[in-house]
Design a binder for these strands. Structure first.
Lengths: 95, 95
DNA sequence: CATCATAGTCTCCTTTTGGTAAGTATAGAA
DNA sequence: TTCTATACTTACCAAAAGGAGACTATGATG
């Protein structure tokens, strides 16, 4: 999700990022961003102002991983219905 | 992993599958296979013999998901080194 | 008669995950 | 003087994940 949102919006601050990702706690978002920074997927720019300001932007590596995931996102969009149907059939059989 | 192994080998029995996937407990493999069956990603064929014989094979849907993931696998193979380097830099900075 | 093989299931237990809520720093606004 | 905004961190807690190992059925084999 972070990969997708940042690929779409370019550069974002923490709060905006959490709004766009949605359904994620502060803790998890912080943790995810730190891991991604550690992996070299994004850069974190801290502005030493009050209140704090921190911006996140994907690196080339991060962008390329986003592209690699595109195939999966497209697959999901195209096949979600089919998976849901398969589940109904399966659950019907089980019951 | 299951997706990859089954895409490579076509049709496999439980024990062989667990060997090829590696590092997975019986419990997790069973669970994973059931979920994938439920989602319509693979078909499970039970032969009513003793000892039991069960074969697993990807469906078209499963194969297509495997293909979709190819981009990620390729990315990982190509960029693993870069990620490792980024981690060393990051951890060095932190320490 | 005892053993083996296969594909599980079941129980128990530990580890991991991830949420909530509270705390932090400090400049500027009301 | 008190409140607000921002980007966290920390402590605590409940739920979920997932491993280990025992158990199951039963026909074939030694």
């Amino acid at each position: 999700m972070v990969l997708e949102v940042l690929a779409d919006h370019g550069e974002l601050r923490f709060t905006r990022l959490s709004e766009l990702v949605g359904g994620i706690s502060q803790k998890m978002l912080t943790q995810t961003l730190r891991h991604m920074e550690r992996d070299g997927l994004l850069v974190r720019t801290v502005f030493p102002v009050v209140p704090p300001k921190v911006q996140y932007r994907l690196t080339g590596l991060g962008l390329s991983l986003g592209s690699a995931f595109c195939g999966v996102w497209v697959w999901a969009a195209e096949n979600l219905r089919q998976v849901e149907q398969a589940r109904q059939v399966f659950d019907g059989k089980a019951a």
